[in-house]
Design a protein around this nucleic acid. Sequence first.
DNA 1: GTCCAGGGTAAGC
DNA 2: GCTTACCATGGA
Length: 265
Amino acid sequence: MAVDIRTQNFDLKQIAESGQCFRMKMEGDSLARVIAGDRLLSISDKGDGRFELSCTEEEYHNFWYEYFDLGCDYGDFIDAIDPVDSFLNRAAASGSGIRILRQEPFETLISFIISQRKSIPAIRTSVEKLCISCGRKIADDTFAFPEPADLAGLSEDELKECALGYRVPYVREAARRIACGEKDLEAMRELTDDALYEELVSFKGVGRKVANCVMLFAYHRIGAFPEDVWIKRIEDDHYGGRFPVERYEGFAGVLQQYMFFSARN
DNA sequence: GTCCAGGGTAAGC
DNA sequence: GCTTACCATGGA
């Protein structure tokens, strides 16, 4: 039960460290373990753009192909970068193996509500604790991301034990509103970018930055451009305070990932 | 012990 | 529209 694929612009370590997902980690130099929703996958890098995935052909075509956005040629984005922008060209070269994942909206929304004022290792810890406390067991010591109703069913104290701090009511209310059907994250796929943004910021604890992250990493609105402390630092240091998003309309979010990655390395 | 983290809210102007 | 105090806590 394994699938061999061949692709470009796909680097496991870079994606695992990209900060867009919190349940993918490297085990050694060329093996990655990915948990997405209730699915578990191992991928090994065989070199020369070849990878082996621990799933069936069917699972690859029905899920992982899309999850890793393998139908998209990221070389086109990199080629579109302004040739005189040496910083961005350098950033893209250093993170050219990053792809924008198509993650499940609920998991992404909750994870990024948790992310505010937390470091990436701390986010990983909190998300993992949430999964252990109410996610379905999918393998030894491995738990799926919780369903909305299961998360909404946790008490305040149980959530506090996941190191959520002041974010407990944010997570709780978002899970509750989705579990009861007041908000439909799947139906929101049909919305325009602006309408989707408005829906997302209607959740308490979701502001401009988190909404843009969810748009980019779950709804694949690759024009969304999340501005966090790292990106703002880059904009101040290299772009006179503001990155020219309008020059890259429709895919600025991809470049944002290259910038974020290079700033943290 | 200190500092910072993939920020947001509410209040004040 | 733009500032500012405040928020809990892990990780370095």
